[in-house]
């Protein structure tokens, strides 16, 4: 069983095999993710009761928390892939890191803006420069931008892969800082509601749509990652026979 799994993993790392695999599997992730998000948004907007403190304003949680979670998850995926690519020189791993970056950046942006839209009516402010949670999430956005800018600065893809991989791996230090900032330091931002060791401090009727949204976003992330990877793999392999065969420039 284990050997079978290892063999499948090696096979998956081969670009032509992965290209076909992604093409077959991605749509399912897209459909499931889309359905979960539609259900979660409906539950969050229409079914969940209003909060005893924040009224209907708390419904921003259903778009804020999933994108904030994804902004960090995408970074961990990017950094892990960059690490594997750097150490084992696996081409596909670098392609994964490159493809995860713009997705992560877009969700970091979303987490920041939805957070501001939530902060204004509840806290009384859009932004506080002294708050560790807010600033570390902004640093995450700049890490994504820095990663993409660094890549663009290189002529050769191999060098871009290696240099940007170092930046991605080093930047992973920021992820636990974001998560624990609300515990280590005093912040305006409240502590975690779901990821506590004891029972979540959110009522079940409000939790279910949130979980639907979080799973939906995760599936959607895999879908978008695979779609990005399809293009990225073609580009990186364009000299290879399987790509030339695929596009019909060689018999």
């Amino acid at each position: 069983m284990w050997r079978l799994l290892v063999r499948w993993f090696h096979q998956l790392a081969s670009p032509p095999y992965f290209y076909r695999f992604a093409g077959r599997v991605a749509p399912w992730f897209g459909v499931v993710g889309g359905l979960l998000i539609v259900a979660g948004a409906y539950g969050g907007l229409a079914l969940a009761p209003a909060d005893y403190q924040q009224g209907d304003g708390f419904r921003i949680i259903y778009v804020h928390v999933p994108s904030a979670y994804l902004s960090m998850m995408a970074y961990v995926v990017m950094a892990s892939a960059a690490f594997v690519g750097f150490v084992w020189r696996i081409k596909l791993a670098h392609a994964v890191a490159v493809s995860a970056a713009p997705i992560g950046a877009s969700f970091t942006f979303l987490a920041l803006v939805t957070g501001m839209l939530w902060g204004k009516p509840m806290w009384g402010t859009y932004w506080q420069w002294a708050d560790a949670r807010l600033v570390s999430e902004l640093v995450l956005l700049f890490l994504y931008f820095g990663y993409m800018a660094l890549r663009a600065a290189f002529e050769e893809r191999d060098k871009a892969d290696r240099a940007s991989a170092l930046l991605a791996v080093v930047g992973v230090v920021n992820v636990p800082i974001i998560h624990y900032s609300v515990i280590w330091w005093s912040t305006l931002h409240q502590g975690p509601s779901i990821s506590k060791l004891d029972a979540p401090s959110i009522d079940a009727s409000m939790l279910v749509p949130l979980l639907l949204m979080i799973f939906g976003h995760t599936f959607l992330f895999v879908y978008v990652l695979f779609e990005r990877l399809k293009g990225e793999v073609l580009l990186r392999e364009r000299q290879a026979r399987w790509v030339r065969k695929l596009v019909g420039t060689t018999a």
């Binding site: 209003a50 009224g55 209907d56 304003g57 419904r59 921003i60 804020h64 939805t114 939530w118 204004k120």
Partner: peptide, 11 residues
């Protein structure tokens, strides 16, 4: 949205 429309819907 209980008066929070200007924040909920843009989000």
């Amino acid at each position: 949205m209980g008066g929070y429309a200007a924040f909920v819907w843009p989000a």
